[in-house]
Design a protein around this nucleic acid. Structure first.
Lengths: 234, 234
DNA sequence: ATTTGAAAATTGGTTAACCAAAATATAATA
DNA sequence: TATTATATTTTGGTTAACCAATTTTCAAAT
């Protein structure tokens, strides 16, 4: 059987949001400060009339955003960000929207115009080799007539890695699969685009190689202008 | 008891990485294509000689990066990104470094110079009110002589929300708690900085209100230049 | 040969019992 | 009274049994 996904906001998500909301209320009601301990998972489960797993899931999400921290055999603690920031952040977490394609592309362009500049300045020789390898792989696939969306993205990820900025690199990783799926869904890349892509990728690579950040950014901008128009004019 | 954290790369993380690596090898060895089904959690657990929970954790992480997708009572599937991109991405996931303060600040500045421009263009009236409220709260706290790091960050988060870009907004949320903790750790903000901050925040707010993106970005840049120097010259 | 339908097996998710480390309470000692 | 040693309780994490939805199997009917 093959997959045909249509992920919706499931019940478990909304239950988790309810629990997060209740944890927030508890922290406020009890005036818990940074470093204070939350009631145990078992007590929370009983208090909220849900299972301990539900509590653990909610805590895990709040841990992801740095609001709580669990210490084994000790307890779950309010992180060191203060009650005001915590309330504001939970508001935003509960109000997070599904990420739309436009935001995704907009963000990708922003990040990449930065990574390509940083990569030009900071790339090591091994960074450069990785980028070159990705470029060669892309070129091979395009010239063989196959779809090269994946090799395309890997070229860009190699640049992100060379930027030396671990945060941006992580962000690029998180948006890449969604980008790939959207691109293939909307058929963003055709053969003609790909042949042009080889030229543009090569120019970007050369600019990084010669450590010319301004030129690198310029070439990346051109590369995206085609893409951008293609995405928005269909 | 109060918390004094020093999170290190735990054993569980490295075990998870080993499992991720093995899942990758399996996908390659079996030539699984997008949409194909992975062996069941139970079989993987037996094959890799680990518990089913370990398998579930690894799958959950690969799900976060969009590489796998679990369907209840059906199976876990390779997402629609292709084997080449998958290999490249798993390489990067396994090689992810801890996020350093410099990357964090660099990324924050990049994101905020964009959000403030977008917010100027797109902000609704209710966005504007939220930003104003955050600004007022910040001013109140500073003038009362208290530490206002939290109100400071909430002002910036309000702008991120007004940018209308859900992806950037999510990213801002994920880096905010780390920023707060680092700021308090390094005592980035003192009283003098905060009083200056009121002026700068107000200027940014006015630029967003009058929908002047260039001015808004300019003011944000000034705001960060002080911060940036403070962070790097200590 | 094809279709149908019910039974059996398989699936990810859930629950509750269990574990070892940590925190706390208690008792013994100085 | 203060301090140390020990037993008990509490903690988040782990494990294994269980569940309901889904998929597969396979024989009966057309």
């Amino acid at each position: 059987m093959k997959l045909e996904a249509a992920k919706s906001f499931s019940d478990s998500t909304s239950l988790q949001n309810v629990i997060i909301e209740k944890i927030r209320e508890l922290i406020n009601y009890k005036n818990l400060e940074p470093g204070d301990k939350l009631p145990s998972e078992r007590m929370l489960a009983e208090k909220f009339a849900v299972t301990r797993s539900n509590i653990r899931d909610a805590i895990q999400q709040l841990e992801f955003y740095g609001i709580l921290q669990s210490i084994p055999q000790s307890g779950t603690f309010v992180a060191n960000i203060g009650v005001i920031a915590m309330n504001g952040m939970i508001d935003e977490i509960l109000g997070l929207e599904e990420q739309d394609f436009k935001s995704l592309v907009e963000t990708r362009i922003l990040l990449e115009l930065k990574t390509v500049k940083l990569a030009s300045l900071r790339r090591t020789e091994s960074d450069l080799k990785r980028i070159k390898d990705a470029l060669d792989a892309y070129e091979r696939t395009v010239k063989s007539g196959e779809d090269a969306v994946q090799e395309d993205l890997l070229f860009h990820l190699a640049i992100a890695k060379a930027s030396g900025n671990s945060t941006i690199n992580t962000f690029m990783l998180t948006i890449t699969p969604q980008i790939i799926m959207d691109f293939e869904k909307y058929h963003v890349c055709d053969k003609r685009m790909s042949m042009l892509g080889i030229k543009e990728h090569t120019e970007i690579y050369e600019a990084i190689k010669t450590q010319n950040p301004a030129l690198a950014k310029q070439k990346m901008k051109e590369h995206f202008s085609v893409l951008y128009q293609y995405c928005y004019n269909k």
